[in-house]
Design a protein around this nucleic acid. Structure first.
Lengths: 131, 131
DNA sequence: ATACTTGTAATAGTTGAAATAGTACATATA
DNA sequence: TATATGTACTATTTCAACTATTACAAGTAT
């Protein structure tokens, strides 16, 4: 796994790591039960403190994205969201509305926004609902 | 304008103010040239430091959302995005992809996500592209 | 002109998150 | 048994966010 950190970003380092791991999983680049780099490996590779990696892994485990075993390593977990449907809808809808507001102020046409949405979603293999 | 601040939110206060103003404009609740509450008014109403309001107004002006005149007040500006199309697409698409990743891990079906997207966008009057 | 309002600027201080540094420990693996 | 790994803990530094206070320049109203 290759992670590059943008120090200019306002997004904290541990959050960028979380984003990257979740994205790689969603893209299928790493799959279920696959082992992630060790805390010390990643820390050495990115040249940051191991505690920062540990914090990212801790939160990823709390979110149910990975499973960690002391002595063994960290592994990609099963897809199994622990959030209720209403909570999931609230979380996602709030983000979507914030994007819609930005799109309004950028004067982006509704069709254009829909195209961008479809392009973004198409990169990931969401359940289709028919299977 | 009525703003309530969520102190439990990880979103900073000044950012919540920015979000709220932009949302109210996008919803049509405040319109072009309309005067916003004064810095001191809002500060008193929300019970926070005037500097925090000033910071929000400063950034809103930098984004071209409002126009401020010392002695007069702050007013809603014209819709006139100063960002290039490529920059706008990059900004929006990054946010959309982050949502798609979250949706993947929440096992949200693609149709469901599309419905939520349409509901969110429908709240705001985006340009249709035909006019 | 005068008084008042408004946004802006500047300084100083407090709080908390983020990140670093170092050490130690329990568990899994070979 | 020896090694690798995730975890836990404390201490420290840095910086953004926020508060507090004062002052000033530009607009408004009288």
């Amino acid at each position: 796994m290759q992670i590059r950190i943008d120090n200019a970003s306002d997004r904290p380092v541990y959050q960028q790591i979380i984003d990257h791991v979740k994205r790689d999983i969603a893209l299928g680049r790493i799959i279920k039960n696959e082992k992630l780099p060790t805390v010390r490996q990643l820390a050495g590779q990115i040249a940051i403190n191991p505690n920062t990696i540990a914090k990212a892994y801790r939160q990823l485990e709390q979110q149910g994205i990975i499973v960690t075993k002391a002595g063994a390593g960290a592994f990609v977990a099963n897809l199994d969201s622990n959030l209720s449907r209403s909570v999931r809808k609230k979380l996602i809808s709030e983000e979507l509305e914030r994007i819609a507001v930005d799109a309004y102020h950028m004067q982006i046409e509704s069709q254009t926004l829909l195209e961008w949405f479809n392009s973004a979603v198409a990169k990931f293999n969401l359940p289709s609902g028919k299977e």
